[in-house]
Write a protein that binds this DNA or RNA. Structure first.
Lengths: 130, 130
DNA sequence: TCCATTGTACGAGGAGCATCGTAGTTCGGA
DNA sequence: TCCGAACTACGATGCTCCTCGTACAATGGA
């Protein structure tokens, strides 16, 4: 037990992850983060979940370390928010920040991913088709 | 002089450039093409021009060969259309195709670029501020 | 205390990319 | 026919990225 300085709602002892401030998020970075198929997939799943998912929940066809890598890229580029909860690390889209900075951008991209999945018969995107 | 098979409106003797068919354009490719600041800049200028620009018109702070490279990436990823006109090569956004495939995507990205430029005081994007 | 779960750090391999300079091609006009 | 303008092809350089395996750390529960 320790009298720590973690903000309200965060379990004491949680490790802290650095996120870019909202003002520091750059469009080119966001696009770059979403330009990778694996990361686009992650973001689609997070959007579909409309809440938190841990890394394992996304069931990516890559190794654990690669998974860690992609989630970190998304976080460092301002696309997702990550918090430790016990042994798990929960991930959520930074929708509020992104919608505020770039209104319609994320919606447009998610919608485009959906449409493309429909066209190609994929099962990846926001979950409506798989 | 030669009886060639170039489509109507294209000066005879023009070299032909390969473009991906509309159905072959992939979201991740488009995002990747736009994830580079230089290419995002190009696309913003083309959108502002609402017509054709040649490479030199975009006045990029890179060498000619790098310029060629970026335009080719944009073309091969389905973002722009390129046609030779004499010694010049004209470039235009494939708005119809992109809007048809991914409604709202390009608008969202262009708008985001504009907003970011306003916030940061840049002069790059669609031209409204520079 | 011990262990399973979850995720990280680190380094490596292989691929791809952004950039450049130089030499060459295509075109239109003098 | 010759020249300049616009652009390309090619190779090189240095950086970044995606992927992985292995070893390690933090947490919660038995």
């Amino acid at each position: 037990m320790q009298t720590d300085t973690t903000p309200a709602g965060v379990p004491s002892g949680s490790r802290v992850l650095e996120h870019p401030r909202r003002e520091a998020i750059r469009l080119a970075d966001v696009l770059h983060a979403l330009a990778d198929p694996m990361r686009l997939r992650i973001v689609c799943r997070l959007a579909a979940a409309d809440g938190e998912l841990n890394c394992a929940d996304t069931e990516l066809p890559v190794s654990k370390s690669t998974c860690t890598h992609h989630f970190r890229v998304l976080r460092e580029h301002g696309v997702i928010q990550q918090i430790y909860r016990g042994t798990a690390k929960m991930n959520a889209l930074r929708r509020t920040d992104l919608d505020d900075l770039f209104p319609g951008l994320i919606d447009g991209i998610l919608r485009a991913a959906d449409l493309q999945a429909e066209r190609l018969g994929n099962t990846c995107p926001t979950g409506h088709s798989g």
